Amino acid sequence: MTNTVENFAFIGLGAMGYAMARNVRRKMAPTGTLYIFDVYRPACEQLQNEFEDSGPVVIVDSPREAAALSQMVISIVPGAEEVQQVYLNDISGINAAPKNQDRLMMECSTIDSQTSREIGEALRATGAGIYIDTPVSGGVPGANSGTLSFLIGHNKPSDTDPVSHRLETVAAMMGNPKKFFYCGKLGAGLAAKISNNYLSCSILLAVAEAMAIGIRSGIDEKLLHEVIQNSTGQNFMADVVQPVPGIVPDAPSSNNYKLGFKTQMMIKDLGLGIRAGYATGIKPTIAEAAYGVYEKASIDPRCIDLDGSSVYLHITAPPRETQK
């Protein structure tokens, strides 16, 4: 980033976006302004109040207004429809802001690669700026600690590509540079993220089922966790996100399934993996099976609006017809 004061726009203050925006405000130039927008205005007001004695945080009424006042835009919203509204809405979208070919737009949502490419190409064609898919991994804990992974649809930083250095500098405000992966072209960051999420969502369900089977077979849950951790079944979801309460102290399950990634969002991410599978000629058998379970869990009162690891509650509950 240059020594000139740079204003930032941040769009989308959900569980992850709020923490990411907080880190940006803390690390950007104190004389720069952070313009924020979210459809849920109380989130904007909360962030503004948090920094009332630090650097300026200004709430705006649309992505268009945020982009008009900024050289740097970061967005993270629920899905492809919301991304399209943020960037391409003829009235309130960033494409309606004054043109600025040097404006850099980092889109951190998890959507399909094709939609991302179409949005990026449309913005470039109208001179709105440089749009790059930069999906993140690490969940709410990573967003809070500023240690997110970034999967970036652009080339590695080089002396001949000033955009790449701006990308790296801004991403470092929210993530760990050791976990930045430059995937080469627009949409490629999302392709990597979709493949990763195919695994993470599916493996989480497999861990929940394996733990449930072992526990009901009479194995102490902590012993079973230790066995898996030191055997060929070892994986991040079992080690860190462990869906059985009381085993991993910092896991969502041990904290009343405190939200990290909503159960309802699991079906979105698995759906992206399924569609990518068919688009590339690979039958996504595991994701399809997991999708069916998460689809039911997403409407289960035990799991709604809780962390996705609460799927353990869904699969271990007695059948509804036997419940009293």
Score class of each variant (00 low, 15 high):
3 N>A: 13
10 F>C: 08
14 G>I: 01
17 G>N: 04
20 M>I: 15
34 L>G: 05
36 I>F: 04
42 P>V: 06
45 E>W: 04
47 L>V: 08
50 E>H: 10
53 D>C: 07
57 V>A: 03
68 A>Y: 05
72 M>Y: 06
86 V>A: 07
90 D>F: 09
90 D>I: 12
96 A>T: 09
97 A>D: 08
98 P>W: 10
102 D>Q: 15
103 R>G: 00
104 L>Q: 07
109 S>E: 01
109 S>P: 06
110 T>I: 09
111 I>F: 01
112 D>L: 09
112 D>K: 10
125 A>G: 04
126 T>K: 11
131 Y>L: 02
137 S>V: 08
138 G>P: 06
141 P>Y: 04
144 N>V: 14
147 T>R: 10
149 S>D: 08
157 P>K: 02
157 P>C: 03
158 S>R: 02
161 D>H: 04
162 P>T: 07
167 L>P: 03
170 V>E: 02
172 A>W: 02
172 A>P: 02
177 P>Y: 04
183 C>Q: 11
184 G>E: 00
185 K>E: 00
191 A>I: 07
196 N>L: 14
199 L>F: 13
199 L>N: 09
202 S>I: 05
202 S>Y: 03
205 L>W: 11
207 V>T: 14
209 E>F: 13
209 E>M: 13
210 A>T: 15
214 G>N: 13
215 I>M: 14
218 G>Q: 10
218 G>T: 08
220 D>L: 10
225 H>I: 05
228 I>C: 13
230 N>E: 12
233 G>M: 12
237 M>I: 12
242 Q>P: 04
243 P>I: 03
244 V>D: 02
248 V>L: 12
248 V>E: 13
250 D>Y: 12
253 S>G: 12
253 S>F: 07
256 N>P: 03
257 Y>E: 08
257 Y>R: 08
257 Y>I: 10
258 K>P: 00
261 F>R: 01
261 F>D: 02
262 K>T: 12
266 M>V: 12
270 L>I: 14
270 L>D: 06
274 I>S: 05
281 G>E: 10
284 P>Y: 02
289 A>N: 12
290 A>L: 05
293 V>G: 12
296 K>Y: 07
297 A>I: 01
299 I>E: 12
302 R>Y: 04
303 C>G: 05
309 S>V: 11
316 T>I: 15
316 T>A: 07
318 P>C: 07
321 E>V: 13
321 E>L: 11
322 T>H: 08
324 K>N: 14
